[in-house]
Design a protein around this nucleic acid. Structure first.
Lengths: 245, 245
DNA sequence: TACGGCTGCGTATATCGTAAGCAGTAGCGC
DNA sequence: GCGCTACTGCTTACGATATACGCAGCCGTA
């Protein structure tokens, strides 16, 4: 097991979730734990959204003071990083079939479901490549799915970035449509109506045609659009894989 | 021309950039203009990043007071929306070839170049589907590129969402690598080193293999990765188009 | 047992977005 | 021509936020 001096250059809290930090040897017993703080953060964000998430609110949720949290995370950004990783715990376990496409699809949908359940995640600024355990587990499972393909390591990473793009984008669009909020019914039809008021046929003939097809006439929050995009992307990957065989 | 009562439900400032708002009939001559404010916002964000962008800083940049800006935009979020649209002015003009794939590729790269030049854009929270003129012009140009294909309107929109996903994701990754900042050299190799310290062969064999291939040994900020992903996605779209012919 | 690392948290500060309202400008309508 | 009022720029003020600093107490190590 690594010593206390791990030299990862990572924040202490990230090292803690990797199990690289033991309990301090001295001092009073802790009334808090990093897990409790992160879980409270997730609960507050789920309930009130990321904009309403403050250190104060998280602390209140567990009956402590905002400044106590700084014994566990050095900045709010660290808490956000750990919150994202916590919800990623459900993304990387699949019933592996040994077929790359089916397995990647499962992983993509796991990821999508997580983001739809926790819409604040895509609102957390991305500050670097993944360094937390669950996010890397998702990546590992994805690479395992691609194990039997002729793709290089670099290409495998690129495939997962592609899939991840699609997932994040769908999640972003779903925020627009306010999934799960009944009072947001009709948001896309409103959008369509506004566009009709804005667009002139001289500059926007194609968009007007698309409008006339009724594309924005109803909100579609099913997973079909995501599925369509994923299929296109995986078709492209499949073409590349075939070309290498 | 629309009257002052346009009933778009859009913020006044957005109506203004659509040319739907005239100059007020009474009152002192304006010393400011919305264009000037937006341009100042873009300049501040380009120089200092989105985190450092405050109403105060934007106002200072044009020698006025923060509260004056509120005569032109009703909230900071509106300013951000208009700033994004302003930089999108360069994305929708292409040398059309009449070949859907070449034209989409041009549009994708235009978009990518814009985001790389203004990395703060992907940090602006997306609050809804595009409603501003230049963003919609990019969408219009994209739909025009797909005009001769057998795709439905809905599918065309989906293609553009897909392409847009890839662009935004690349831009997000480039923030990680701090494009253009010499002191950030070696960020990916540092990442690779950190991963080696974290990953155990029991749980992360695939990722370790990828590491051993040297995938993270150097920063790659060229456009090749983006191009690769775009090709995969467009291969998938091409397959669908072919299947409908 | 003494020392010092650790805990929780109170106080304080700088910054931010923006509400409220004042004084002055300028055009409309009578 | 005058009064009214819409509009402009900006000052003052406030609530909220993240987090620095430091105190008092806890508790394990040497």
């Amino acid at each position: 097991m690594p010593s206390e001096e791990t030299d990862t250059s990572l924040p202490a809290s990230v090292e803690a979730v990797w199990g690289l930090r033991g309990r301090p040897a001295r001092g009073p017993k802790r009334a808090l734990s990093l897990e409790r703080i992160v879980a409270a953060g997730v609960a507050v964000a789920d309930r009130e959204g990321l904009d309403a998430l403050s250190m104060s609110r998280v602390a209140n949720a567990i009956g402590t003071s905002a400044m106590s949290l700084y014994r566990y995370v050095s900045a709010k950004d660290e808490l956000l990083t750990l919150m994202v990783d916590a919800v990623y715990a459900d993304t990387w376990t699949i019933a592996a079939t040994g077929r790359w496409r089916a397995d990647l699809t499962q992983l993509a949908f796991n990821n999508l479901h997580t983001l739809r359940r926790h819409p604040w995640v895509v609102r957390v600024p991305v500050t670097g490549p993944p360094i937390t355990p669950h996010q890397l587990r998702w990546l590992e499972a994805s690479l395992a799915a691609l194990r039997g393909t002729p793709l290089s390591g670099k290409e495998k990473i690129a495939v997962m970035l592609l899939v991840n793009s699609l997932v994040r984008n769908d999640a972003t669009l779903m925020i627009d449509l306010r999934v799960g909020e009944p009072e947001s019914e009709g948001k896309l039809p409103d959008y369509g109506k506004t566009l009709r008021l804005l667009l002139d046929p001289k500059h926007f003939p194609e968009l007007i045609d698309v409008l006339d097809e009724g594309v924005f006439d109803y909100d579609d929050t099913s997973e079909q659009d995501f599925s369509w995009s994923l299929e296109r992307a995986l078709d492209g990957v499949a073409a590349l894989i075939e070309s290498k065989r």
